[in-house]
């Protein structure tokens, strides 16, 4: 505590600001990775949809050309079964997933994932805004008392 007010302040602040910065950067990186992964999944689903509608593949579930995400595959299967069950609601039996059901199911999955992506994009935007604001507020709040000392405000603890 002899190297000058601002040097002391910077050294002390860094103790807390560096780990906080590491945490914020880690979260921001994980979020952007998640966003990219979601974008890739949507791209693969779109390719699968094109393949089905062009009649080049019977079902994306059995596709070897496009490897869909496991969760997406599961969602497509369930949606296709639901659509088929809806079609057979007048007492018929589910015989199997037909091409049209699959196309609708993939379309439904794409819309779900796109909604997820939009929500995530919004959350990332707010995360950036809030984290930068909070970080600046922490720096300002830590700097108030040293600034008062610098300004010549001679306050002493009783």
């Amino acid at each position: 505590m002899t190297s000058g007010l601002w040097f002391d302040f910077i050294v002390g602040s860094c103790i807390i600001l560096i780990p906080l910065a590491i945490l914020i950067v880690t979260i921001a990186r994980a979020l952007s990775l998640k966003y990219e992964a979601l974008a890739q999944r949507i791209a693969k689903l779109n390719s699968a949809y094109r393949l089905i509608t062009n009649d080049r593949d019977d079902s994306p579930i059995n596709s070897i050309m496009i490897e869909l995400d496991e969760q997406d595959n599961k969602l497509i299967k369930n949606s296709a079964k639901e659509i088929e069950a809806g079609n057979c609601s007048k007492g018929g039996e589910i015989k199997g997933i037909i091409n049209n059901d699959c196309a609708l199911a993939v379309k439904k999955t794409i819309s779900i994932r796109m909604a997820e992506q939009m929500l995530l994009a919004q959350k990332i935007k707010f995360f950036r805004l809030y984290s930068i604001t909070t970080y600046l507020l922490i720096i300002i709040s830590m700097g108030i008392l040293p600034a008062l000392v610098y300004a010549g405000f001679n306050w002493r603890w009783k």
Binding site: M1, L5, D8, F9, V11, G12, I15, I16, I18, P19, L20, I22, L23, L145, P146, V149, W155, R156, W157
Partner: peptide
Amino acid sequence: IITISFALYWEWWELFSDHYYGS
């Protein structure tokens, strides 16, 4: 890492306050 940094900041703040504010 963050708890220890808070703790070190607390100790640093005590030292800082004693030096500049007479606590």
